[in-house]
C-alpha cells in the first residue's frame, strides 16, 4: 500500500535533512552552531499549526456532512499534533536558554504555542470522555474549530507584539532572509516531517477504522481470509 513508500521517502529525506542541517550548513554568524536547533524546531512548529488546521478542517467536515472517515482522520491527527507542539516548545526552550539567557518567557509567541498544546490535550481528553465515538467526534470538532482562532494569533504574534522570538525568516512574502545553504536543509526537514505525519496518521486511521467497524462484515471477511481460519 502507500505507507511503505511514504516511510522510505521520509527516512531518506530525514537523513538528507540531518546531513544538510548538522554538517553541510555553515554556522550562523550571530548564533554560531546553536542555530542548528532550527532544523528540528521550525519543522515541528510548522507542523504543530499545519496539523491543527488539518484536524479542525477534518473535524468540521465530519461535523457538517457526517463523514466517518473525516472524524477518524481528525482523531488520529491529535496525538501527532500534540507531539509536534511539545517538540516546538521544548526545542525552543533549549534554544532560548543559550540565546536569550532564559528557558521561558511569557511572551506572545511562546504563550500562544503553549495554548495550542493545551488545545490538543483538551481535544484528546474530550475524545476519550465519551463512549460513543460519534458524539466524541462531534464535541471535539467544535472545540477544534473554536481553537482555530489561535493559529493566526501564533503566526502573527511576532508582528503584533514585541517579543523575544525572532520574526519570520521564511514564510513571508518577499524573499526569505536566510542563506540558501541553510534554507535547503530546513525545507528538506520540513518535507520529511510532513511525510512522517502522513505515514503515521494513515496507520493510526486504519487501526481506528478497524476498531470502529469491528462489527461490520468486511472486517470479519478481511480477517477471516488471513488469520481466523488458521
Amino acid at each position: 500500500m502507500l505507507t511503505p513508500w511514504l516511510s522510505w521517502i521520509c527516512a531518506l529525506l530525514l537523513i538528507a535533512g540531518l546531513y544538510g542541517g548538522l554538517i553541510y550548513a555553515p554556522p550562523d554568524y550571530q548564533q554560531g552552531e546553536s542555530f542548528r536547533i532550527i532544523y528540528v524546531h521550525v519543522p515541528s512548529a510548522w507542523m504543530s499549526m499545519f496539523v491543527y488546521v488539518l484536524m479542525a478542517t477534518a473535524g468540521g467536515v465530519g461535523l457538517i456532512w457526517h463523514i466517518k472517515i473525516a472524524e477518524v482522520f481528525a482523531k488520529s491527527c491529535a496525538p501527532l499534533g500534540a507531539s509536534f507542539t511539545f517538540l516546538a516548545l521544548a526545542t525552543g526552550s533549549l534554544w532560548g536558554k543559550p540565546m536569550w539567557g532564559t528557558w521561558w518567557v511569557w511572551d506572545a509567541r511562546l504563550t500562544s504555542e503553549l495554548i495550542l498544546l493545551f488545545l490538543y490535550l483538551g481535544y484528546m481528553a474530550l475524545q476519550s470522555a465519551f463512549d460513543d465515538r460519534r458524539v466524541a467526534a462531534r464535541a471535539s470538532a467544535v472545540l477544534a474549530l473554536v481553537g482555530l482562532i489561535n493559529i493566526p494569533i501564533i503566526h502573527y504574534s511576532v508582528e503584533w507584539w514585541s517579543t523575544l522570538h525572532q520574526g519570520a525568516t521564511v514564510t513571508k512574502l518577499d524573499a526569505p532572509s536566510i542563506h540558501i545553504d541553510m534554507l535547503i536543509p530546513l525545507l528538506i526537514m520540513a518535507l520529511a516531517f510532513k511525510l512522517y505525519f502522513f505515514t503515521i496518521v494513515l496507520i493510526r486511521s486504519r487501526t481506528e477504522i478497524l476498531e470502529y467497524e469491528c462489527n461490520s462484515k468486511w472486517v470479519s471477511d478481511l480477517l477471516n481470509e488471513t488469520e481466523v481460519s488458521k
Partner: peptide, 16 residues
C-alpha cells in the same frame, strides 16, 4: 562539541 552548544543542540535532537 557544536561550538560549545553541544548540550542544547544534542538534547534537542535527542528529544526529537
Amino acid at each position: 562539541h557544536m561550538g560549545g552548544y553541544a548540550f542544547y543542540v544534542w538534547t534537542s535532537y535527542a528529544l526529537t
